[in-house]
Amino acid sequence: MKVLVPVKRVLDYNVKPRVKADGTGVDLANVKMSMNPFDEIAVEEAIRLKDKGVTEIVVVSIGEQKAQETLRTALAMGADRAILVTSEEKVEPLGVAKILAKIVEEEQPALVILGKQAIDDDNNQTGQMLAGLLGWGQGTFASKVELGDGTVTVTREVDGGLETDSFPLPAIVTTDLRLNEPRYASLPNIMKAKSKPMAQKTAADYGVDVTPRLKTLKVVEPGKRQAGIKVADVDELVTKLHAMGIAR
């Protein structure tokens, strides 16, 4: 059984984003880029399912040429094969989902595991869109994934707690933070990953129109909070809280 894992190259989560002075976006020049953390969790989950009937893991990234670094990371973690789809233009979740739907047609995976959210644009859309386009079930925000006989059962992190749903295969899963702790690639595995296959494609190869539907008119910094005061002890804190009308 084959699993497809889409991975996105994003600004590393430890880097503080800086808005460009001309208001066109966030500065990505000369800053550390990494695999979207939720996608690391997705790759890790696919690897863990290898003991449970998964035979091949294919990773896909859509973006610029440099996304191949991200794919190599996934290969070093334990994925088997990679597909890089390059595009000059930034591809929105709808376009990404359409390209992924074409790849699914070709590859026929039983499961596609995505991150729940890319931490750059914070869209939280692609997995649900892909499921809609394919007419598949969607186990979103997963904190537990169990493969059964022709089904996948997913425990989902929802607002009030946890919900468990079951989906016939093939299906979509999107990962939440508590699903697993991704491994670090070992040096030998990083070396081995260099010779794993990576196919190069373009968005045009799939006949998908990726013209953006959303135009970014401007990007600004949010209003800054002023740092306030420090109080010396609990008594002073209580006085301040009381002055604000709290716990009176």
Binding site: D122, R213, T216, L217
Partner: peptide, 14 residues
Amino acid sequence: PIYAGNAIATVQSS
């Protein structure tokens, strides 16, 4: 909001 609210984007939908 984008980038964990570290930037605010104005977007127009076609």
